[in-house]
């Protein structure tokens, strides 16, 4: 029932041992390269290479489908929208009232759909193999982001896992007061909105209490030390290199085949 976002056990996959910053860097580099190139060749090559990385992140194809099906839908829809709205070049394929597809617009649509998938996948790979606590440690210690904000966000994340369970409890508690459970769509929506508001109130109240706890533990008063050290190791180099290689290979392939189409070109 509860979507306890960060209480899941630490992943044991190879990528999980890499420093989160290395993974983030590799993923972002790849994302930027894919963002500027809109063609089906680079997208396909990147997608295939990314799929080969899945085992390193401890993700099976089944888990990917379970977790990622909305992504598939979104990519297809995005491709469709582009095919519909792109400038109509090439030969006419289909005309039905205002809906027209040409070979040019269809190609653009396919490219956008594939690119969408190729952009989404690094995010899933990195995040499935990254523990939020490690990420926070890396952001604060290596990237030197202000620690109060980083740790505040980390603590908040834990709280939200609890709030998901609280939704159920609140529903029962309010029913016990006679709120909700009335027939009719309008009343149902009203009750749901009331409950959402109650959850928001609980979220803020718990946040204030959590802040008291953190302050009482001396948080935010001055310099602090770190119990967990965030460090870079040899295989972080491999991770970064891997991201760059995928980006380079996919763009080179597109350039070689003559289909590369940079956005700002």
């Amino acid at each position: 029932m509860s979507v306890d976002i960060i209480a899941t056990p630490r992943s044991t996959a190879w990528l999980a041992r890499a420093n989160p910053l290395a993974k983030l860097g590799a993923g972002m580099a790849l994302t930027v390269v894919l963002l500027v190139s809109v063609d089906w060749v680079s997208a396909t090559v990147a997608l295939v290479l990314e799929c080969m990385l899945l085992p390193l992140a401890g993700l099976s194809a089944r888990m990917l489908l379970l977790r990622g099906w909305p992504i598939l839908v979104a990519a297809v829809v995005g491709g469709y929208g582009t095919a519909l709205l792109a400038p109509k070049t090439g030969e006419l394929l289909l005309e039905w009232g205002p809906v027209t597809f040409t070979s040019g617009s269809l190609e653009a649509g396919v490219a956008i759909a594939l690119r969408g998938l190729a952009i989404a996948l690094p995010g899933i790979i990195v995040l499935a193999s990254t523990d939020p606590t490690d990420l926070a440690d890396a952001l604060a210690q290596k990237l030197r982001l202000p620690h109060r904000f980083v740790l505040g966000a980390l603590a908040a994340m834990r709280l939200v896992g609890l709030l998901v369970a609280e939704w159920q409890t609140l529903g029962m508690a309010r029913r016990a007061r006679g709120v909700g459970g009335e027939p009719g769509l309008f009343r149902g929506v009203k009750a749901q909105l009331g409950q959402a508001m109650a959850l928001l109130v609980q979220a803020v109240r718990r946040a204030s209490r959590l802040a008291v706890t953190m302050e009482a533990k001396g948080f935010g008063a001055g310099p602090r030390t770190w119990a967990r050290e965030s460090s870079f190791a040899r295989h972080d180099l491999w991770v970064v290199a891997g991201g760059l290689v995928i980006a380079a290979v996919s763009v080179s392939a597109a350039v070689l085949l003559g289909s590369w189409n940079p956005v700002f070109g």
Binding site: L162, R206, L210, K217, F219
Partner: peptide, 28 residues
């Protein structure tokens, strides 16, 4: 505090116990 749920800050018990000591700048 009165509410035990409000005591916990981090998601693993070792990290949570360490949290206060970190803030007091105790060496690792």
């Amino acid at each position: 505090q009165q509410d035990p749920d409000a005591q916990v800050v981090l998601s693993r018990i070792g990290d949570d116990v360490a949290f206060g000591a970190e803030n007091m700048a105790v060496p690792r």
